[in-house]
Design a protein around this nucleic acid. Structure first.
Lengths: 324, 324
DNA sequence: TTGTACGCGTTATCAA
DNA sequence: TTGATAACGCGTACAA
């Protein structure tokens, strides 16, 4: 900035002002400064700026996995909203491990973000402590709690499982099995489904769990319950659309008709849900709205406001298509 | 650090040393310092550290889309390698637009990253200039060029199209159509396929293009060529596995048998390629190796080394399964 | 093994 | 409308 100022015939401070609040600089000097910037290729140092102003214009986001469309799609709108206000996103994966999350939080905090987004509501005690100590807005998403660290936007996973079960019962299904991915939230959804469905139908609901929830795992699980005789028709409730899609593929490969021979219900309403054959009955969560709400809550808190509702339930809805 | 030092009975510098190089501090004082850190909940300020040391321990990564598994999977290994060396990734989406990329590069440069990763080899002139001026390692990935800004790890998209065509001809297909996503690299792949296939088979290859390459678009494109009579059997070459998967779904919905009634070839060898029915013949790019090579090239350059081969071709291979 | 002094490149405060 | 000066919280000499 000093070099730019020298070239424009002004001091370093004036260059700083020209960049942060052009209205405080006369049009003529502003022009000279811009000319100097263009000539030198000067790029301001945001590190120094952040250090001096105590504003990093950085927002941290921690998600279990960035290759999972479920998280990346809500992040897309979250970061879009924040980028519009000049914030940049510092993104990290935490896996599904609380200790790894704690380590990542510490790393992020050292960059002095102006706010931080966490996935889920269950964290290591140390994580909570660090976050409280940091004194910045914290928003927990993709789950819901009455006792958030600060802010929370999400929905109840058990409630979504209950909704699936109620639908299944009312649609006339009397037997069911559950296929779940290994992460804690998926298991809570399926556990709630199994508990409610078996209570209403009187038949127990076995729940199979796989570490990762891919297409291949969906196929393999269906093959497994079919070959072992665990499943003789009825409904297959899956913790994700991808798993459900795998079930569809395996069923087709065995010349089984969906939903006649077996019915399938997914979770997430990803793009593929409507595009597969038959289209998937699934639970839709408005991920974009979730990301947007999280952003506006954070933005309000950064402005110093105290939101009337620090916990926002975005809800979900069952989309009935042809698979069940 | 001063406060921590006071509590531990040492100066600020000693605290700094305890954190950056514990071997330079006596075990006793180290213990006192760690106790003080634990007591105060002190988290070092990486902004100040970066400002003083001229090392931000930050590496920028710019990808067209983070919801696209193709990019996020190579990023996963890239960031894993760098995280192991203490670097953090500053990630941004650029869409498929050169101007947006330039603006994002400028934003990232203001954070003084120690290196930067760019997707593709075609950039705005201004981007090249800024990057050269920044004087940091730059690695361009997912495409290849003889004249990189600095480093390059990727493969030739036209060559992959030629490989598809050569396979198709040798497998006996005499007619083909191409389905391509709208991005520049996808189109180059399909254009190369069409050119080579028609040269060898003597029949022209129409190429359909869709802005986004989703499952629904794959279905719609197949429905379209079938209903309009543009396609009467032969091979469908797709710019991605997802598009190919859409073709598979639509074919099954119409009771068409693959590969007998129509054959399909994809690109990318994503997880789904082996899991669908029939499994997809596709082009595999080792995305993990790509991310890893990019990381080690960058790391070497950061260490001040001059890599013998600044341009690395990772190549690709055709995986023949049952769809073609 | 530890400490002193200084500088990194900005913003904030105050004065002109 | 502009400038001088002092932080911001660390690392890096250099000295002890």
């Amino acid at each position: 900035m000093q070099a730019v100022g020298r070239m424009a015939g002004v001091s370093q401070v004036t260059v700083s002002r020209a960049l942060s609040d052009p209205s405080k600089v006369s049009p003529e000097t502003l022009a000279r400064i811009h000319a100097a910037i263009a000539a030198t290729g000067f790029v301001p140092n945001a590190l120094a700026g952040a250090l001096a102003s105590h504003k990093s214009m950085l927002v941290s986001a921690l998600v279990p996995s960035m290759t999972n469309i479920v998280y990346s799609s809500m992040l897309a709108t979250f970061s879009e909203e924040l980028r519009a206000r000049g914030y940049q996103i510092l993104l990290s994966e935490t896996g599904f491990d609380a200790e790894q999350e704690a380590a990542t939080v510490e790393l992020h905090l050292s960059r002095r973000p102006d706010a931080i987004l966490l996935t889920g509501v269950h964290h290591a005690p140390r994580t909570r402590k660090m976050l409280l100590g940091a004194g910045i807005p914290v928003v927990e998403v993709w789950d819901i709690t009455e006792t958030p660290i600060d802010l929370c936007v999400g929905f109840s996973h058990p409630a979504s499982g209950h909704t699936m079960a109620d639908f299944a019962v009312s649609a006339g299904y009397r037997t069911a099995v559950g296929f779940s991915a290994g992460d804690e939230r998926a298991r809570r959804r399926l556990a709630a489904f199994a508990e409610r469905f078996s209570a209403q139908s009187g038949t127990p609901v076995p729940v199979k769990v796989t570490a990762v929830g891919g297409l291949a795992q969906g196929r393999a699980m269906l093959a497994d319950v079919l070959d072992s005789g665990t499943f003789q028709g009825g409904l297959i409730a899956c913790s994700s659309d991808v798993l459900a899609h795998g079930v569809l593929i395996e069923a087709a490969a065995r010349n089984l008709t969906v939903p006649e021979d077996l019915a399938v219900i997914g979770f997430g309403d990803q793009d593929l849900a409507a595009a597969v054959e038959p289209p998937l009955t699934t639970i839709r969560v408005n991920r974009e709205a979730l990301g947007r709400s999280a952003a506006s809550l954070v933005l309000a808190r950064i402005r110093g406001e105290d939101p009337a509702h620090p916990v926002i339930g975005v809800g979900f809805s069952l989309i009935r298509r042809r698979s069940a």
